[in-house]
């Protein structure tokens, strides 16, 4: 005897519910703690900043996705784009010729901009600020490209070329960006701001002739 089954005490079931409630409270508390910690940490700017790979004209600047070598810089108030259209600016067109060699797999350096000493950013577009990557370049094969960007004359001296893959600056977080000091001075700015000789913007091209 003694085997008479006794109904499970209701206390067990009642205990189960508070345990679930406690789990939910703990979960919410963990989320709240995570959010509070995130708010206190400097995660917004410094830890997500891109890695700047820097260099000057002629330097081969290596990044995770390939390398960039600026070969020449020119300027004027006028450019002739690869389709023969002449564009006129009230500022200065800065035309940068550079070579890009993809690393590992075909890549498109889609983000190209000039950054001035004040931190202003001047990006390429399709027509007014012509730049064409020529599509994905095969790894190891240098591709010569050109970008023409119009800027106010006071942005020329000290301007840097910025190149990376993602077009959205939000996506530059923790990625490599190439930053090349173009070595430009106020004299360059003054000369280019009065020049009416159109600078030709070259089409992208692969292979021989590209900088080694």
């Amino acid at each position: 005897m003694g085997g008479r089954r006794v109904a499970r005490p209701p206390a067990r079931r009642l205990n189960g519910l508070p345990r679930r409630a406690a789990f939910a409270v703990l979960l919410v508390a963990a989320l709240a703690t995570g959010r509070a910690v995130e708010g206190l940490m400097p995660v917004d700017d410094e830890t997500v900043a891109p890695f700047e790979r820097t260099g000057g004209i002629g330097d081969r600047v290596e990044a995770r996705w390939g390398d960039v070598q600026v070969t020449s810089v020119a300027g004027s108030t006028r450019i002739e784009d690869p389709y023969g259209t002449v564009h006129v600016t009230g500022g200065v067109y800065v035309v940068v010729d550079w070579t890009y060699t993809a690393a590992g797999e075909p890549q498109v350096p889609a983000y190209v901009a000039l950054r001035d000493t004040e931190g202003r950013v001047f990006r390429t577009s399709v027509e007014r600020n012509p730049y064409s990557s020529g599509g994905a370049a095969q790894p190891g094969i240098p591709r010569r490209v050109a970008a023409a960007i119009e800027v106010p004359a006071d942005a020329v001296a000290g301007a840097r070329l910025v190149v990376t893959l993602e077009t959205n600056p939000e996506d530059h977080r923790r990625d490599d960006i190439v930053v090349v000091d173009l070595g430009l001075t106020q004299d360059d700015a003054d000369a280019w701001a009065t020049s009416e000789e159109p600078v030709e913007v070259a089409e992208p091209a692969d292979g021989p002739g590209a900088a080694s």
Partner: peptide, 18 residues
Amino acid sequence: YVMADGTRLDAVQPGLEY
């Protein structure tokens, strides 16, 4: 369109007046 040259204004750069 930009009056100076008749090309389409697809980007407005800071610090310039068009």
